[in-house]
Design a protein around this nucleic acid. Sequence first.
DNA 1: TCCAATGATTGGTAGTCACCAATGATTGGA
DNA 2: TCCAATCATTGGTGACTACCAATCATTGGA
Lengths: 164, 164
Amino acid sequence: MTTPDFSQSLLDLDVFVLSNLALNVRRRLTERLAERGMNRWDVAVLAVLVDHGPTVQRAAASLLGVDPSDMVDMVERLVNAGWVERERDPSDRRRYILTLTPQGREMFELAGQEERRLREALLAPLDAREREEWRALLHLLHGHLRAGGLDAPPPAAGTAEPEP
Amino acid sequence: MTTPDFSQSLLDLDVFVLSNLALNVRRRLTERLAERGMNRWDVAVLAVLVDHGPTVQRAAASLLGVDPSDMVDMVERLVNAGWVERERDPSDRRRYILTLTPQGREMFELAGQEERRLREALLAPLDAREREEWRALLHLLHGHLRAGGLDAPPPAAGTAEPEP
DNA sequence: TCCAATGATTGGTAGTCACCAATGATTGGA
DNA sequence: TCCAATCATTGGTGACTACCAATCATTGGA
């Protein structure tokens, strides 16, 4: 552990604590996914396809909040890995249609397993009730933020926030 | 909102949700600190000095889990801003002793204010009990992680984790 | 039939982060 | 008095993230 100490004064600032906690968890997630040959973006894109079925590349980018130009390499990866099929839309040959392959679905399941393992390790010190509570609050806050909960004071305009 | 949708399938993966929540909150924190001419590292360093009093630069770096070479610019900033004084240790002239100035302390207070404002906005949808619960769980998990809670399966060796 | 809009792509910028090797000054102990 | 260790510093790397402008093919509608 490189950071044996998290200054008490900083501990009082919950936002720092949250940020630090999440960053570390996220690092672990990245590591575990890497062991399976995946990265976080892979999982995010696969999730979109799992939920929406075949999707136009541009629409997927927009769903993910990613710049279309940055989407190119992400899709490349997935296609090369055989997790996604990319085909021109016959009815509009400018578009690519992304389709999940069976292998892609498997990989997504696998990512889910890794996530659960990691979550289990993280929540180890919590009992069942606390886990429920944690999960509920987490999703509540996430929803609040996604609904623009932090824009209240200055109703910011073009705020970006991709990042799987 | 660039990300109108967070795929349901991804929502099921709490670690992604946590990561995303924290990343956004962190972005806001960065913005608000910037309005005051500060960044997150400034606050982290100031916190160390608040808690430990005058500190050898190297020790501060080590407390923060930061590479000593990366500490240089961070300290530069603080010194130039007049928030920290950097003086050679008379008893060992290789060392720098970092000391908080009154202005530095003020800035730290200010950072605390910004953090509380942001926290307030984030926790707006929670009632008093839920806030208590959230805070307790957050610190519990943070402590667990800091104690190496995620190293259980593979007892990793040189794991770094700075980042204020 | 021609033009403005759309979708994918290329290439480039800028910031942040974590790391590492090398250097020069200084120290304390052999 | 000399050497190995320590401290701050310089400079450079590689990754990842978020952008933006320009290009090219294609489309649908005027």
